Amino acid sequence: MMIKVGISGQNGFIGQHLLRTLNIFPGKFKVVPFKKSFFDDEDELNSFVKSCDTIVHLAAMNRHEDPQVIYDTNIELVQKLITACRNTNSTPHILMSSSTQEERDNLYGQSKKEGREVLAKWATEEDAVFTGLVIPNVYGPFGKPFYNSVVATFCHQLTHGEQPEIHKDGELDLIYVGSLVEKIIDSIGQKTDDSNHLVPADTTVKVSEILELLSEFKKTYFEKGEIPELEDTFSLNLFNTFRCYIDMDEHFPVHLTKHSDDRGAFVEIIRLGIGGQASFSTTVPGITRGNHYHTRKIERFAVIKGKAQIELRLIGTDKVYSYELDGDQPGYVDMPIWFTHNISNIGDDELYTIFWINETYDPDDADTYYEEV
């Protein structure tokens, strides 16, 4: 049965990741479009609520110079959502994202806790299903620096010539945004009825340890082009997060050093602190390969002979990054996660390309999704 899911705050950090992931499964989920302006238009909000089987309420204010504005805004959003449900006699399964900051003495945490309790009371009165998600610190690709997390801030600073500073070296309970999205989707499918659903952290780590790892990624990958050793899932997720803060217009393509003598030429393609799978392809003129994206894999395209055009586009956006590479000056482009990508032979001769990916191909878990650039 198709589940119609609406996401308030679908353009936010978590909302974008949830939206993209739900769209991978068009046979299971249909996303009901949402705009921020719906909260200021009673008819639009009523129509939205009436169209949904499930609503994931992510919309909230996190920062403002006046904490009282944060509190008032977040409570008002919850009240407007409940009013729309009552106006339309709708009882969708509502999931609300709260925060472990509920236990802190600040108005943001207070607004999330009280909002969760108000929705739980509505669900009890209307015999509806409610899931109150109490979530630790979330990190991952495309988070907003100086807003979403210290990880986003550090990644942005390290890839843009700035030096991060640690103001307080405490321990952080962290969850990767992809892991959180999986848990939200599981709760949607299971219709989890739990007004105080504590979402466990993936890892607990000190701020200084995060900065140490990211600084190593800068030195190894950003400056040298080497894939670092990734010892665990946290390191992989943090590395994929780091890669998404690189300025695609400035950094790629990266040109390789070509060593030539009377025997021919030698070009080093990649240095690895990690395993994976390397492949080689030839492509005849006028042909395009790819048009797919990955949600976890690290991938490099290296052109060693012929002329190629490599294109990438972040899922859900319109901007296309386009690079022309020529085997006479060998180079590579790396594929960030959630970027659909392709490679075309734009020359008159056969194109030779080497592909490297950090895990061997598994047809039962390919992490490869078709979408044209």
Rank of each mutant, 00 (worst) to 15 (best):
141 P>Q: 09
102 E>A: 02
149 S>R: 06
180 L>R: 01
170 G>W: 05
177 V>H: 02
153 T>K: 08
179 S>G: 05
108 Y>K: 00
104 R>F: 15
157 Q>C: 07
136 P>E: 06
167 H>G: 14
173 D>W: 01
139 Y>H: 10
97 S>Q: 10
107 L>N: 01
140 G>C: 08
154 F>Q: 01
179 S>V: 05
142 F>Y: 15
163 Q>E: 15
123 A>S: 14
175 I>F: 06
178 G>N: 11
169 D>Y: 06
166 I>G: 10
122 W>M: 10
136 P>M: 08
128 A>S: 15
183 K>S: 11
165 E>Q: 14
136 P>S: 07
182 E>W: 00
132 G>H: 07
123 A>F: 06
108 Y>W: 07
157 Q>W: 09
98 S>N: 09
116 R>H: 01
158 L>V: 01
159 T>A: 12
118 V>P: 01
110 Q>W: 00
153 T>F: 12
183 K>M: 14
151 V>R: 07
185 I>K: 04
181 V>I: 11
134 V>Q: 10
164 P>W: 08
151 V>L: 09
155 C>D: 12
180 L>I: 05
140 G>F: 04
101 Q>L: 14
174 L>A: 03
175 I>E: 03
122 W>N: 00
122 W>V: 05
171 E>W: 09
114 E>N: 10
108 Y>T: 02
181 V>H: 03
115 G>Y: 05
162 E>Y: 10
140 G>Y: 06
158 L>R: 02
157 Q>I: 04
138 V>R: 04
114 E>Q: 15
146 F>M: 12
142 F>H: 13
111 S>T: 06
106 N>W: 04
164 P>M: 06
177 V>K: 02
122 W>P: 00
174 L>D: 03
139 Y>R: 07
